[in-house]
Design a protein around this nucleic acid. Structure first.
Lengths: 208, 208
DNA sequence: TTTATTTTGTGATTTTATTCACGAAAAAAC
DNA sequence: GTTTTTTCGTGAATAAAATCACAAAATAAA
């Protein structure tokens, strides 16, 4: 019913609604949201109907109310605390990512094994990985990002489970062996690049 | 036939095969690859069959040959040059991302409007955005990454089209209006975070 | 050899996702 | 107040994707 791709679309509708609101839209139609996100109007309405999000016949959806409802479904009605494990290139970028500023996503700490990276004074402190479990429990953090190399990922993941983490966004290119109490989503940048390469190459070459 | 998610799976099979090879596997079975990537064995075989990748009945797939074939399908048999527009947090992380090191993905330059970021001496130089078209043509770059804020993304995209770019990986949270000669793939980090939040929250709360 | 076992490759089937199409509600026009 | 127009909400129809299931090939065992 509520699949991964359906929820991804809800996020996009939300982003589109935010943009339209900033353009002073008071109401939006399923057709507008479809245009802004690249799906059909009936897909938008079907997605909404599955989550009980309703508008007004002929009147569309009130933007403000729509945003409240979408944020509620997406769990953005309250702050969501994340920790990042692996303060390399990508980890650091996520910790400092300004795009989360307006959103309810809060990155509250980073963890690494390299003492050169520790920084207890920062807004989001960088701490030794041994302190992970203590920190997570003390601060009631349930969400984590794995941004370590592939060979370290499974070990980190097991530490996260012990620390009571319930959801993991994994940037390492391996499938993590998980017990069922932890939700794992994988996101691999190389894979995304390869995907683009494939579609560009096959469009260009007339031999396929 | 060859959809986005099918190609994403091929990339994962390739990553799994690389890992199994490093464990001295000489041949792999569809079952192995399924385990390593979280799909069924018959999905693996169906995906392969669509791209004419074949193995040996009872003998599985020779890892080396499989990698050659997967890399060929994925366009990884030759270097793929990318430029990055927007040298903020994320752009910088991508430029320095070590995960691309072994792969054929090459990030050859970054572009920004902020003179403080320019650096012509670096391995992947950071240049003013006005030089984008010239650079892309001189270096035969056809692939680009948009890592600028949402309000700047459409403008950057139009510059990329004029520069002859054929494929764009867009990290800005908007849908780019594209002519059909350019392939655009969107990847939004906030959206990925929200997706995880949703599934963690709905698993935890017994009300759904 | 012959028989048993394993694993691929793929058509048939099932499941899931998307689109269609139209009645119902609400507003606007007449 | 009646008609027309617009847009939602959703069951029905279609399309797409994943799984099943089994014949065929290849190897190993007897």
């Amino acid at each position: 019913m509520s699949t991964r791709s359906r929820i991804l679309r809800l996020s996009r509708y939300k982003n589109a609604a935010i943009r339209l609101k900033s353009l002073n839209f008071v109401k939006v139609f399923s057709d507008n949201l479809g245009d802004a996100t690249g799906v059909t109007a009936s897909q938008v309405r079907k997605d909404f109907s599955i989550f009980g999000i309703s508008g007004n016949r002929r009147g569309g959806y009130q933007v403000d109310e729509l945003l409240v409802q979408l944020n509620k479904v997406l769990g953005k009605d309250k702050p969501q605390k994340f920790i990042v494990v692996g303060v390399g290139n990508l980890g650091r970028a996520l910790i400092n990512y300004p795009g989360f500023g307006k959103s309810e996503i809060r990155i509250v700490a980073g963890f690494d094994i390299d003492p050169a990276k520790y920084n207890r004074k920062a807004d989001a402190p960088i701490l030794p990985i041994d302190e992970l479990a203590g920190f997570a429990k003390a601060n009631e953090v349930e969400l984590a990002i794995i941004a370590v190399p592939d060979f370290a990922a499974q070990g980190v993941f097991e530490k996260l489970i012990k620390a009571g983490i319930k959801g993991v966004l994994n940037f390492a290119p391996i499938r993590l062996k998980s017990d069922d109490n932890v939700t794992v989503h994988n996101l691999n940048l190389e894979t995304e690049f390869e995907n683009l390469i494939y579609f560009v190459n096959t469009k260009t070459s007339p031999t396929e």
